[in-house]
Design a binder for these strands. Sequence first.
DNA 1: CGGAAAGTGGAGATGACCTCCAAATCGATC
DNA 2: GATCGATTTGGAGGTCATCTCCACTTTCCG
Lengths: 189, 189
Amino acid sequence: MTADKPLRADARRNREALLAKAREILDAGDFFDLRFDDFARLAGVGTGTLYRHFPTREALAEAVYHGEVAALCDRARRLQATLPAAEALATFLRGMVDHIAAHEGLARTLATLMADRSGTLAKGSRALEQAVTDLVAAAVRDGAVRDDVGAGAVMMALHGIGAAHDRPNWRAEADDVITLVLDGLRRPL
Amino acid sequence: MTADKPLRADARRNREALLAKAREILDAGDFFDLRFDDFARLAGVGTGTLYRHFPTREALAEAVYHGEVAALCDRARRLQATLPAAEALATFLRGMVDHIAAHEGLARTLATLMADRSGTLAKGSRALEQAVTDLVAAAVRDGAVRDDVGAGAVMMALHGIGAAHDRPNWRAEADDVITLVLDGLRRPL
DNA sequence: CGGAAAGTGGAGATGACCTCCAAATCGATC
DNA sequence: GATCGATTTGGAGGTCATCTCCACTTTCCG
């Protein structure tokens, strides 16, 4: 699966240029406003090269998303290693809101892509989901969190936060959602 | 604002035909797979007529969404009139999951459109949001729900449920999200 | 019923997406 | 550092969905 053939030097350079441009555009939120061909022009490569590396718009977004997810998973692991389980979960979720707030355009674009039933981003999300599942499971083992609600619900809530980025009072509401989730998880009732 | 000119008879007929077809396609989940022109052909009208009534795909979806929202708001009002506030809120939210489950394609399409920053559906959503806000406010007045978390958070959670419709275990997770929200709302802690 | 206003429909212009292949570039080998 | 096969490039052009435009039809009012 990870049998990445050693890419030729120029190929790698072009690939990086495309990814860098895509990340920039994604962060700016203009991902869908731009003709796909223009990614190539902006990155200084030909359209053929663009399509060779990323057959579709979605593939390009997914590649950027991948790096994003990797960073978030790292963070989850670090938190889990240094904090009590319940606190690690809370800190991670609060941090997710910060992260989404800092990358508004990316969040919105990914939300759009996820809503498609294409499932383009499913693979990338898997890792993130695993990280959240681990955090929740650890908190359950500690007895800090109820065991009758799965981590999937937390993912859904996060999804809602990311997808609703155009709400006028987004930040406060996002924090509220996390509060509800954490308080709702706290006790088996 | 509501100065709807009295539409001519044939115009109204065509408009209805288009809406009916659109609702059907939306429910089937094929909304984006279809050439926009084909909505016209399927509804038995010309492309020009389609564009006259609904300048964009989004406008067509919004028109369908409008009816949907109106029905949901009615339901909210009825519940609020017949049940204690907390119970009305819980019943409404549980019912939303049923409703989304029953109209998967519609939910997914709307989620896609909402993620766009176009804000096409913002107007339609306003009414739904008002209904949820009323339900929450009533429950707060009853003392059954904390007052430091706004209804916007509940909307976000619902949004997440609707947007994540392709998750393999959707139904159970959606129910869990509602559980978390309701339990999280229950006590000021 | 007659005429003006409102609405229709579909042919065709527009422009985005993607393919294809001759030319350029790389890097292994001598 | 020169040679050569393999890899990668770039962008011109084909294809196809979107949307416009206007000659014609339908409605409705007096």
